[in-house]
Design a binder for these strands. Structure first.
Ligand code: ZN
Ligand code: ZN
Ligand code: ZN
Ligand code: ZN
Lengths: 176, 176
DNA sequence: TCACGTGATGTTATAATATAACAATATGTG
DNA sequence: CACATATTGTTATATTATAACATCACGTGA
């Protein structure tokens, strides 16, 4: 817990690495606030609270879990509250939706305009957001070969992260 | 409607191409029957009916739409009927689920063991299943770089197919 | 043939996810 | 302050999916 934080958010951690998550959240909040200001949008209390809850862990969060957590912080919380706020955060590029999981995740590099690509560990549930690049070339090739123009995409790769590969060969041997 | 049908199912059509869909369905049914027999599974009436409904068009189908269509063909149809049957067909590799759409699609090359990769036209809804290859290289590179072992994946690329790119610049100008 | 075990289907109930529609409130601007 | 607009609250409902248990169908061996 004494890491160097450069221009990339601390949230862009590699699987299994330690990092200062308080700092990570703080940076993410600062960033979110700035993104909203620059876009002429308001980073209201509600939006900040939801954003914090999404960022509480580097794991996908379900809308109704957010709902419960949020309800313990403020009154008058209904599904629409959560979904609307998630929609807003997604529109600002601050949060991604994981289609295969019906879940949401804070974006780890919101400074760039991008679609999310994800590695999702089936054992520990940790999610790593890939930075663009690796796939862009093959996608360009597909567009070319198929006469298809890609406008958005869902790329979610499920498997085992380094730690969980090492830790086992079977399921969950009490992870850290 | 006079096409050549080689070893690849007629369902492996390119976007916008014409093809003999009766033949396409017939082939798909034959194939499904064979897959089940070889796996020691029964291709029952229910399973055949659901399979036919999924193959009715080269478009994703929603579970509850299948439910309605199926209910007009037999009695005692409930959600569980449909979901169970879809689960079975997916397990046999005959049908894929599109996570981003909560919808299902007949597999266009069930002879090979594979995950589905899809191009989905946002305008005409036609879906083209990519054959593996284009992505495998970049996925291997990601696995290597990230110390992550991929076991399954969701890859769904949304955009405009050739026909819809040509036809417009805006939305739906009454397609064929 | 028929008892039996298994897999398939039917049936009922409910869980989990998401949106619609409209009312009330907050915020900034002139 | 009056007004327009964005945000949030509130109620109801739509959509998607699963659980749990009952019944039926099919093959196998007594
Ligand atoms: Zn963190
Ligand atoms: Zn991102
Ligand atoms: Zn066809
Ligand atoms: Zn397929």
């Amino acid at each position: 817990m004494n890491e160097r934080s450069s221009k990339s958010l601390s949230g862009s951690l590699a699987f299994g690495s330690e990092h200062n998550h308080s700092l990570c959240i703080e940076e993410a909040l600062d960033h979110a606030k700035r993104v909203c200001e620059e876009g002429g949008e308001r980073f209201t209390n509600l939006r900040r609270q939801v954003f914090e809850l999404v960022w509480a862990e580097h794991k996908p969060v379900k809308a109704y879990d957010l709902l419960s957590a949020l309800a313990s912080k403020r009154s008058g919380v209904a599904p629409a509250t959560v979904y609307r706020t998630l929609d807003f955060l997604q529109a600002q590029g601050l949060v991604h939706r994981l289609e295969s999981l019906n879940a949401y995740l804070g974006c780890s590099h919101p400074e760039t305009d991008h679609q999310g690509h994800f590695l999702i560990c089936e054992n520990c549930e940790e999610v790593r957001e890939l930075e663009l690049g690796a796939f862009m070339q093959s996608i360009a090739a597909v567009e070319d070969a198929q006469d298809f123009r890609v406008r958005r995409m869902t790329i979610e790769l499920f498997g085992l992260c380094k730690r969980c590969q090492a830790a086992n060969s079977g399921p969950d041997p009490t992870l850290p």
